[in-house]
Every structure is written in C-alpha cells, then in structure tokens.
Design a protein around this nucleic acid. Structure first.
Length: 587
RNA sequence: GCCGAAGUGGCGCAAUGGUAGCGCAAGCGAUUUGUAAUCGCUAGGUUGGGGGUUCGAUUCCCUCCUUCGGCUCCA
C-alpha cells in the first residue's frame, strides 16, 4: 500500500515534470516563430507556468490578436518538422558573442555565476536556458496561444515594457479543450457578471470607479455574513468598536502613514483650517481606544474588532470588480497582549480564520509566512522579529497548514501570515492577514502596567480574517457560482402560484415561512408556472414552492429544489423544519 | 501608473462614411396555465465625454474618462 502510494506519487511527479518540459519547449518554439516574423526582435524570458507558457519580446510594433494565429501556424510547422532539442554548454564569453544582438540575454548572462552557461537549441533557434526540454519539437502538440499582454522586463516597473504572449498547453488535446471550457465556465461564474445577473451590486464608473453599490440582495448576504461574524467575535472574546472615518493630519503623522502610506491616501479635506484625512486603515483609531485609559496587565489581551470602512487610492489599472476596489470594509481587529500571551493569541487567530473558511465552504486556501530579509529597515528589535516569526510559523505548522515562506515579504513593521483564496480562474486574492506590529505601539507610546507596577509595552497584532467584505463577497460569489447555500441565499424560497386563484394561499405559505425566519418571495406575475420556475432557477433560488389546488387543499407546497430535484408535496410544518435545519447547519 | 484591446437602449449583440437595427428585459393588454421561456402591442439611443477631418462620422484622426486581459502594487 505504502509502496503503491509512493509509485503513484513518483508517477504524478514525473507527469508534472513532463508537462513542464512540454510547456517550456513550446515557449522556445514560439520564440522561434516570433523571431521568424520579426528578425530584429529582442527576446526576454519564456518560462512554463501552471496552465502553459509565455515568452516576452521587444518588437518593432505592437502585436494584435490577428498575429496570434499566424505565430501559432509557424509553431505548428516547427512541430511538424520534428527537430530535436539539443543541449550545449559554452563559456560566458562565447555566449556573449552568440547573443551579441540580444541585450536581455546579455543581462542574464552577466548574472550567471558559473563560468559555463547552458544553451538549448532546436532547428535554427538557440536560447540561453537551463532546460530541461522534451526530446523533439514534434512532442509539443496540444497548445493554443491565448493572449497578448504587457510585462515589465524582470517585473520591475522602471524597466522597459515587453510584449508577452501567453499560451495554454496540456498533455493531450482533451485536456487542453477541457481547460478552454473551464475558462468559458469561469466567465459564466465571474462575480462581476453574476453580480449584475443576480442583482447583488453595481458600479457607477461615471461617479467614481472602484466604489461599490450594494443592492438589496447583495446587502442581504453581507448582513448575514456580518451578523455571523459579530456573533462569532463576541463568542471568541473580542469587543466590537466603531471608529471615525476621518482623522486630523496629526494622527496620521504620529502613525507614520503620512510618511509611508501617503500615496495610497486621498488628499486631505479642510475642516476649520485643519487637514483631515479619510482613513486608509483603522489601526490608529483602535490604538486611541486602547489608550483611552490606563491599562493593567490583568485586562490583557484586549481584542478590538471593527467592520471598518477604509478608502485607499488604487492605481487605475488595478481595479477589478469587487476584488480590488477603492473603498472597502475590513473585518479588522487589533489585539493588544502581553509577551506571554502572544503565542496563544496567534493560534487563536489561525483557528478563527479556519472557522470562517470552513463556514463559508472554502477548502482551498494558500497560506504564506512573510518574513524579513536580512537587510532592510525594520521597526522593532531583531529578537522581537525572531520571536514573532517563530510563533507565526509554529501556529501554522501545528495545524498542519501547508504554507510558503515569502522571505523578505514582511512589511517594515512586522512579520505576518497571509491566506489567499482562489477565484474561479485560479487567481489568488489575499484575504486573511495576521500581522505583528512593532511600529505603532512605539509611535503612540502605548503601555500597560505590569505586575511589577511598571509600564510595559504591549504586543500588537493586526488581523483581518475575511479580509474585506467586498473581496470576500467576490470570492464567495465565484466559489458558489452565485448559488449560495440556504443560510446565505438572499431569497431562500419563491412561492409559485399556478393560477391567480392560488395567490392568496401562496401568501399564506410565504407568511408562514417568514414567521419562521425564512426569506421568501411570492411570484405573482401573470406568467405561466414554467416561466416562474425558469426565472427562479436563473436567480439560483434554493427552494421553489409550487402551489395549486392540490397544495392549497392539503396545506402543503410542492417542493422543487434548485438542483432540479422534485421533493413532491410537503406539509408546511415539515417544510419549515427541513429548511430551518438546513440553515442551522449552514448548508 | 505602464502595454494592448474595447466602449452602440437596463443586459447581450448588429450596422464601415449616407435615415442606428435585433434578441432578452421593461410597460400595457389578452391568456389562468402542474415543474426551465404564452401571445400581441408599445416605449426606450445627441453610438462613453470633448475636439477635429468631411457636404455628411457609430464608422477616420486627436484627447480625456471608463472597462477588459496582463505587468507593477495590494485587503
């Protein structure tokens, strides 16, 4: 059994590796094709990625979508010629001569530490490349060029921008097709589309891009999420607070935001000749609440939580539906605690995060531990950082959460754990963040009186678990494809009277359900039952309750589920009990 | 912010220099129906904003705004 699992693992690994080779090889074949079209092209890099490959080029003109089929056709010819990939090692000097016309390659050569550099050659194309590749171009079969995009050389915005061509590649044509279908499906499940179709939210770009308008149905879902959130926070020892939306410039000077965060803050407004700023973060306010009285070590930990709405300037090109907006509500909290409490507090945060993810049906999330880099300017002592980093690491390791370490990814004021959720195109969106703050306690000089009667500096942990209501809702919509589970569904049931004479009974059914705390609508339009069912299906309403003569007679409703299942006629008490149980278990 | 593409009734689309159309949705009327679209009629657009070329611009040019796909940056 063990051995079998082992073999399977090895096979899986080698399949993955083979796919990587194929993708990487396709990138070379694409570069060959592009060079054929533009002999003067300067080539960047072309790695495999998790759905295919890309290659970056500097070209004499902008590519258009019409170029892609042409390039793809040239690639197919190269595939057809089925030439071998040959590996070679040459000296750096020889490589510099070989790539004399390729400035980006020269730059890469300069960064290689070895004396010898590795080349891969196929047909007339040679690339500076570690490999590995497949044996022959003919092995590259199931691919498709997808889109053109701009990308800075080496990902640095001070560098020139190159043109990137993305391609999809899979082992087989079937897998490629299923990937393409998946993209289609993702389009159907896009939260921006569903937001409109299900009447959840809107944007009004002419009155401000990146600003969300929550409609009644989106508002319903948000309220349910928030109510659950508040209830759980009280259960978990948090106190809920409310803080102002604006604060005088002196606050942001003390906090350091005007030094370090100004480019994300909106211009100040004048209030009685003083500059006030709209808040990009809640922390300085929570610190004031902490600081409003003398704190004893006995009071700690103090956990202040707030659904705090913040506004941040985001560069115009980065806005994206609900996922990236300019005004959003964080499920923020700041924990002030003693050194001996730090470990437990962090563990509680990680557990709490998992409680929420489970409640909302997220199985998949990607955890990162962000640490300091050896050099760089950081607030707090090295000892504090070491302690904090190991506490964070242990908390996720103890819970068996696989994670990646982002070395140097920490903000200047402390190390952190982040968790990202995936949208349905596999793009990751950071939601949870649990971070130490060694900066603000010092800047605001906060303290508590210890057992020894002296002042001590508390540790401060900043955390948002869902991240922001907007982003979390966006991911949630995609996660469920708009078909929210019963406890979250804005409309849980639609009562469908078959003919007008059934409207009265339909209303009594709806009232009975409403009395039981369920969210119900009655479809009284002069439409046929079939049309009403169809519309309820499209609105992804979990329960459709058809009522006609038979049901009115029996005090029942014919229950159809969103899945298409027909449960037949159910007596109202039975139906209500069923639905309540489903809500209760958050199904 | 950068590279590229796009913007036409609420939504999805058509029209290539010569009178802006279609489907869905909406409103009205008829129909009263048993598990995914009943029929008919009506209304709705200074074609994202501004400027230019032209006798004439949805169409060509410039500019700004916004969106989309990336890059960079972030909850």
């Amino acid at each position: 059994m063990r051995e079998e699992a082992m073999t399977q693992k090895l096979e899986a690994k080698s399949a993955e590796e083979r796919l990587e080779r194929l993708r990487h090889s396709a990138a070379h074949i694409m570069a060959e094709a592009v060079l054929e079209m533009f002999p003067e092209a300067k080539i960047g890099i072309g790695p495999p990625i998790d759905t295919g490959f890309y290659y970056d080029f500097s070209l004499p003109r902008a590519l258009t979508p019409e170029d892609l089929p042409v390039i793809e056709e040239k690639m197919r010819q190269s595939v057809k010629s089925d030439v071998p990939f040959a590996h070679e090692e040459i000296s750096k000097d020889a490589a510099r001569k070989l790539f004399a016309e390729q400035p980006y390659k020269l730059e890469l050569i300069d960064d290689i530490e070895n004396e010898a550099v590795s080349l891969y050659k196929h047909g007339g194309f040679v690339d500076l490349c570690q490999g590995p590749h497949v044996e022959r171009t003919g092995q590259v079969q199931a691919f498709k060029l997808m889109n053109i995009a701009g990308a800075y050389w080496r990902g640095n915005e001070r560098n020139p921008m190159l043109q990137r061509i993305y391609g999809a590649l899979y082992e087989t044509e079937e897998e490629l097709q299923s990937h393409l279908e998946q993209i289609e499906e993702a389009f159907r499940r896009d939260h921006r589309r569903l937001g409109r179709e299900l009447d959840l939210f809107s944007f009004h770009e002419e009155y401000g891009p990146g600003l969300v308008y929550w409609h009644p149905k989106g508002g319903r879902v948000r309220t349910i999420i928030e109510d659950f959130w508040r209830e759980e926070h009280y259960k978990h020892g948090y106190e809920l607070v409310y803080s102002p939306h604006i604060g005088r410039s002196s606050l942001w000077e003390t906090s350091g935001h005007l030094d370090f965060y100004k480019e994300s803050m909106y211009s100040p407004m004048d209030v009685d000749g003083q500059d006030y700023y709209i808040k990009p973060m809640n922390c300085p306010f929570h610190i004031q609440i902490y600081n409003s009285g003398l704190r004893s070590y006995r009071e700690l930990p103090i956990r202040l939580a707030e659904l705090g709405t913040v506004y941040r300037y985001e560069r115009s090109g980065v806005l994206h539906g609900l996922m990236r907006v300019r005004g959003f509500t964080q499920d923020d909290a700041h924990i002030f605690c003693r050194p001996d409490q730090v470990k437990e507090e962090i563990e509680r945060c990680v557990d709490f995060m998992q409680l929420f993810f489970r409640a909302f049906g997220f199985e998949q999330f990607h955890v990162f531990l962000s640490t300091r880099s050896p050099e760089g300017n950081y607030a707090g002592s090295v000892e504090d950082w070491e302690m904090a980093t190991s506490v964070l690491r242990e908390a996720i390791q103890d819970r068996g959460l696989p994670h990646d370490v982002d070395e140097g990814g920490a903000v200047f004021y402390g190390p952190k754990i982040d968790a990202k959720l995936l949208d349905n195109l596999g793009r990751e969106w950071q939601c949870t963040t649990i971070q130490f703050d060694f900066n603000l306690p010092q800047r605001f000089d906060i303290s508590y009186i210890g057992e020894d009667g002296r002042e001590h500096r508390p540790y401060m942990v900043h955390r948002a678990l869902l991240g922001s209501m907007e982003r979390f809702f966006g991911v949630l919509i995609e996660q469920y494809g708009g078909a929210f589970p019963l406890w979250l569904a804005p409309v849980q049931a639609v009562v469908i009277p078959i003919a007008d004479r059934h409207i009265e009974y339909a209303n009594t059914v709806a009232d009975a359900l409403r009395q039981a705390g369920l969210r119900v609508e009655v479809d009284i339009r002069a439409e046929r039952m079939q049309a009403k069912i169809r519309d309820a299906q499209l609105q992804k309403v979990p329960y459709m309750l058809v009522v006609g003569d038979r049901e009115a007679e029996a005090g029942a409703a014919a229950v159809r589920l969103r899945s298409g299942d027909d449960l037949g006629a159910m007596k109202l008490p039975e139906l209500i009990a069923r639905m309540q149980a489903e809500v209760e278990e958050r199904g």
